[in-house]
Each structure stands twice: as C-alpha cells, then as structure tokens.
Computed example of a mutant assay.
Amino acid sequence: MKLIIGAMHEELQDSIDFYNLNKIEDEKFIIYKNEEIMFCITGVGLINSAVQLAYILTKYEINSIINIGTSGACDDTLKQGDIILVDKVYNSVADATAFGYAYGQVPRMPKYYETNKEKVINRIDYVKIKNIASSDIFIHSVDQVDLFVKKIDDEISILDMECFAYAQTAFLFNKEFSVIKIVSDVIGKNDANNIQFNDFIKIAGKEILEILKKIL
C-alpha cells in the first residue's frame, strides 16, 4: 500500500474526497484509506511527523511513502506555484559540529537523506529538482535563512517543518520515500508572493490532487 503523508488537511482534503477514502483513525492520529492507498495528516512539526509515521509503519503494511504539500522557498530563482521534486533532505537546526559531524547531521545518522525520484520525475510537468531543509522553526526571514539554513554545506531551496522527520523515519524503517512540494512563498522576494497563503493553499490542494492523479 502507498502512503500519502502531509502536515495540513487543507493540502490533502481535495485528494481525500476524490479517492473516496474512509477515515479509519481520528483519536490521536488522523488516517484515511481505501483498498490501495492511505493518507495521514500529521500536523506541523518534526516530532508529530516522526511519531505518526512510525506508528503507521508499525501497524500497517506500507510499501512506499510520498510526502506532498506546500513549502516556503529561500531560493530567488523560484516563484509561487513552482512544483519541486525534492532530491536531498536536511535538518537545518541540528548542530553536533563540536563532535566532528557536519552541520545539520544528527549524530550517527546520515548527513542527509536522498529521496526516490525515479517513479515520479517523468510523470509531472514543469518539475524542478531541489533540496529541502526542515526544522521546528518557522523560517520566514532572510536573517533566519542566514542563521540556520546557509550553514548547511549544500544548496537549499525550500523549507518546511516536517520533511526531515519523515525522511529519517522512512530510512530507519527501510521504506521508499519521495517528496513533492508546491512553493507557497519565497522569502525576501515580495513580488513572488502574489496570493496570500490562506487563498493559495486552496489552489495548492487542487494542484496536489492533479499531481497525485499522475503518480498513483
């Protein structure tokens, strides 16, 4: 079974309705499924994301995981609405450099997590391949990007608060993991953010459904 996982209901509600999914859990974890696919809404943040994905992987038979949703950008070559296929996933606030690890690397874990792109890349039009960094900080200013993100020894283009937790959990459970994001805004580039987030996420939800139709 494929698992579609994301942070917010607004991002996935159109898809949940289209695929006629039944809600099977709603107490601590919000999970929907039919015979072929499962959707999970984790809420925001690294701990929520890791715990809920781990819960699903221990209880249900999942073959592959797709994280899809919206994401802010810190790359001025991007614009609102761009579709991003994530290559590498980093943690933008882990700092064990005193022990010889790279900035962003959790001790005794990989420096980053590389996603599975082969099954997705040829099915989505106008996709761009970029790296993402995650943290429990809502990074929304150039100063924050300089303080946290630019310490990573790689080019980071988009930011969120969940993807690294999904990626590390998928790695520990040895599950195939892919990430698709739609750029909601670009930090420091006001002319790239024409639609306010509360309106944009409704548009993004419809775009997410169109993407899922192509890859599921």
Rank of each mutant, 00 (worst) to 15 (best):
Y126V: 00
E36I: 08
G188W: 07
L172W: 03
V186P: 08
E176T: 13
H140T: 12
E155S: 14
Y32C: 10
D82R: 06
G205K: 11
K206V: 13
T77N: 13
I66A: 05
G188N: 09
K206R: 14
I132Q: 05
I68N: 00
P107T: 12
Y126H: 15
S71V: 00
I56S: 10
S135R: 09
D146I: 05
A102F: 09
D26Y: 07
C40K: 00
I121C: 02
A54M: 06
Y19T: 07
Q13T: 13
S134A: 13
A98L: 13
G100A: 05
I47E: 05
G72Q: 08
E118D: 10
K181S: 09
D14G: 00
N122L: 05
S141V: 10
I139V: 14
A204W: 01
A165P: 01
I158H: 02
D154K: 03
Y60D: 01
K151S: 04
Y60H: 13
I37Q: 03
F138P: 02
I47Q: 04
F138A: 02
L3D: 13
I47A: 15
P107Y: 12
G69L: 12
E61C: 06
L3H: 02
K119I: 09
V44F: 06
K59G: 01
G188E: 07
V183W: 03
N194C: 01
S141H: 09
L46G: 02
